[in-house]
Amino acid sequence: DLSALRVEEVQNVINAMQKILECPICLELIKEPVSTKCDHIFCKFCMLKLLNQKKGPSQCPLCKNDITKRSLQESTRFSQLVEELLKIICAFQLDTGLEYANSYNFAKKENNSPEHLKDEVSIIQSMGYRNRAKRLLQSEPENPSLQETSLSVQLSNLGTVRTLRTKQRIQPQRTSVYIELGSDSSEDTVNKATYCSVGDQELLQITPQGTRDEISLDSAKKAACEFSETDVTNTEHHQPSNNDLNTTEKRAAERHPEKYQGSSVSNLHVEPCGTNTHASSLQHENSSLLLTKDRMNVEKAEF
Rank of each mutant, 00 (worst) to 15 (best):
N143C: 08
A91S: 04
C38F: 15
T247V: 12
E229G: 01
R70E: 14
Q147V: 01
K44V: 12
S58G: 05
S3E: 04
L50V: 03
L27T: 09
K259C: 09
S139P: 09
K250D: 03
T248E: 09
K19A: 09
H284K: 13
I88M: 04
Q205H: 05
K221P: 00
K222Y: 00
K222E: 07
R135I: 00
K31L: 13
E28W: 11
K31T: 12
L21S: 07
K55F: 06
E28R: 12
L155S: 13
D231I: 05
S150I: 00
L164T: 12
T247L: 04
G182E: 10
G182I: 00
T275F: 13
E140Y: 03
K167F: 00
E226D: 07
I124F: 07
K55C: 04
A107C: 07
S281F: 05
L27F: 06
E249P: 07
G159T: 11
C46A: 15
K31M: 14
T233G: 12
Y129A: 09
L86F: 09
S280G: 14
V190N: 03
T207A: 06
S263L: 02
V153R: 10
H238Y: 00
E202G: 04
A224G: 01
I67M: 07
G274Y: 14
K31F: 12
L86R: 12
I89T: 11
P257Y: 05
R6Q: 12
L29S: 07
C60W: 14
N276M: 00
Q171G: 02
E214I: 02
T275S: 04
D39E: 03
S126N: 05
D200K: 11
E187W: 00
I179T: 08
L204Q: 09
Q59R: 06
K108T: 01
Y260C: 07
A107I: 02
M17R: 15
G199E: 07
K37G: 06
S152D: 05
P144S: 08
I25E: 02
T247W: 13
E214V: 14
Q201Y: 02
F78D: 01
Q80N: 15
V82L: 04
K49H: 06
L85Y: 08
S122F: 15
D231N: 07
D244A: 05
G128C: 12
M47L: 08
S139A: 08
K44H: 02
T277Y: 14
S156E: 13
K54S: 09
N234L: 05
R130M: 13
I20V: 06
A301F: 10
H269Y: 02
H278D: 04
M127H: 05
G199D: 01
S58A: 02
Q168L: 12
S152H: 03
L50F: 10
H256T: 10
N12F: 05
K19I: 01
T211D: 03
C26L: 15
